[in-house]
Design a protein around this nucleic acid. Structure first.
Lengths: 249, 249
DNA sequence: TTAAATTTTGTAAAATCGTGCATTCTAAAA
DNA sequence: TTTTAGAATGCACGATTTTACAAAATTTAA
């Protein structure tokens, strides 16, 4: 067995079990404990796992669906995710769109909260399945190769039939005047349907995407109930949204 | 043996097994280890594989890393997958169920063949998205935590609306007398719908699951058109199926 | 505090790697 | 067809990486 394979195995074990024992891996892979110890140290150095006395545990800052380095503004998105969780008491029906911000929301979802989540995003569905109390319902349809989400008539029809308590709208560009806009026409249709099917609309975005706009409009600012960014709610940048009556957290 | 041939061999080997040992290739192709080392370096430079100490591993599958050691009877399933691809000319509408055998079919799907694939399985959808020419349509519904597939009324209703050229039925137990059976009632409902919606039914199974049965019946043997196992089509174990008129490959 | 488990440190052996060089092979030019 | 430059190959050898084992130091838990 190659060293690289061992490393992959360990990462995967940590991901699944959240914690591994050094002796267990050693026995399972039939190599000395020293070797595994070295592997663990190596992975810790790389930040892939956290080595502890007797084994290793999951490093909560690591994303397995995308490498964390690949997630732009990862730190900000973790902050946003934590704020988003405050809106969920338990028992809600939620619709989540795609995007890396929502991926963080899904990944870091508190393990002790139950909810029913509808999503058209493959990576987000994968993450949600790691949470035993969450009922995940995938919104089917033609999958987009790059965004890994369902698009098209089937998906929209399904969404129309949902009566959700709230939705988490990720990605897109937000401007206090132009509202929420998107680059892709198909995605716009999907998000419009989501906004219409939700009692409460929550927009999540990194501050960088505020005050910019794209070609197509999803909804106006007033249709959004809550805005979540990584900034302090008192930051001047979000002031225009508060003036329009949005809750900013 | 020409250099090009070696390179192709190595790429293919990595594609199928996800890893190769330098010494193995050297012995197999009867060239010095130095040469293979140089080949590996070359392919790494081109980004085709990832060279590691002692050999090389695949670098293509990123997102949901999939470990071949964890797949029971992996070798057999690779054989089955290769046979299954022979049934696809291009342009077909295919329904694929879940299971690790079908996962191999999806993963190793020839990159130059186009097709429309419906699937209720999250891992299989992820794999299919790696293939640019394949249009993947996810069959939505309530996701099962362990099997990572859509189940329930929504999924079944979607399947009923499909008119597929063929379906790849994975997993389950197969007996020439009792037909195809399953352990889980929900899964049975789903598979029944798939069988009804497909012009041609292809069952894929490792030989070990032949001549065993579970509680619930999906369909009788005669409803299956083609049986694929890792065995030679002349193997006595598949004889009863040939007698019933099935094509065995 | 003590005993057990775990880690660190040091060492040695095995496997693997990179490089220079002579030889062989390949393919383009004559 | 023959010639020849350039690429590919095999071999030798020192460098590096990986691994296992052992002893001493440290941490953990009772």
């Amino acid at each position: 067995m190659l060293r690289e394979e061992r490393l992959n195995y360990i990462i995967n074990e940590v991901r699944i079990r959240n914690r591994v024992l050094l002796t267990d891996i050693s026995k399972k892979l039939e190599v000395s404990e020293d070797t595994i110890r070295r592997d663990l140290n190596h992975l810790d150095d790389q930040g892939k796992i956290k080595k502890v006395h007797g084994g290793a545990i999951s490093n909560s800052f690591h994303v397995y669906t995308y490498k964390e380095e690949q997630i732009y503004a990862h730190e900000s998105k973790v902050v946003i995710a934590t704020k988003a969780h405050r809106l969920v008491q338990g028992g809600e029906v939620i619709i989540m769109t795609g995007g890396t911000t929502n991926l963080e929301v899904a990944r870091l979802f508190p393990k002790d909260i139950n909810a029913t989540v509808f999503t058209p995003s493959l990576p987000i569905a994968m993450q949600l399945l790691e949470h035993p109390l969450i009922e995940t319902i995938f919104i089917g349809g033609k999958l987009s190769h790059d965004a890994q989400i369902s698009l098209g008539g089937d998906a929209i029809r399904t969404i129309m039939g949902i009566n959700a308590d709230l939705c988490f709208l990720g990605m897109g560009n937000l401007d206090s005047q132009f509202g929420l806009t998107e680059f892709d026409w198909e995605v716009v249709q999907l998000k419009k349907a989501i906004v219409e099917s939700s009692k409460k609309v929550v927009a999540l975005t990194i501050s960088e995407k505020i005050n910019s706009s794209q070609r197509f409009k999803v909804c106006s600012t007033t249709e959004i109930h809550t805005l979540i960014t990584e900034l302090d709610p008192e930051h001047p940048m979000v002031e225009p949204f508060k003036l329009k009556g949005l809750e900013v957290i």
